[in-house]
């Protein structure tokens, strides 16, 4: 049995600001993981990744990150993605400060 496909979001860093962005269902880049589109089908995820990677003038380093669906939208399943959506732990900087 192949492993079941873990849900994903498309994520990257914005070209100008360098901060973390996620792809929403309406093709906009959003700053908040809660607004990202959850991809539960592997084929669809690959297509969304290709489309997003083509937008090289907007975002850098596009990839698929694992998430788990939650009541407030997608939740990170790895600590790296948790830090990316929040900001550093030594200062109240980054996304946590702009909420």
């Amino acid at each position: 049995m192949p492993k079941p496909f873990a849900p994903k979001v498309v994520t990257a860093n914005a070209l100008i600001e360098g901060d973390v962005v996620y792809l929403a269902a309406d093709d906009a880049w959003v700053r908040d993981l809660a607004q990202a589109e959850i991809l539960t089908d592997e084929a669809v995820a690959q297509v969304r990744l290709l489309e997003a990677s083509a937008r090289a003038h907007e975002a850098v380093g596009v990839y698929l990150a694992d998430v788990a669906p939650g009541t407030t939208g997608p939740q990170p399943t790895h600590f790296r993605e948790d830090f990316r959506r929040r900001g550093p732990s030594n200062y109240y900087h980054g996304k946590q400060a702009s909420r």
């Binding site: 860093n13 600001e17 360098g18 901060d19 973390v20 090289a56 003038h57 850098v60 380093g61 790296r80 830090f83 990316r84 900001g87 550093p88 900087h93 980054g94 996304k95």
Partner: peptide
């Protein structure tokens, strides 16, 4: 402007000390 791709730009920015990190 889009005249350089990230693959073309990356070695140039690195030569000038500019990285892309986790948050910025």
């Amino acid at each position: 402007s889009g005249a350089l791709t990230e693959d073309e730009f990356k070695p140039l920015r690195l030569m000038n000390g500019l990285y892309l990190q986790l948050h910025a």
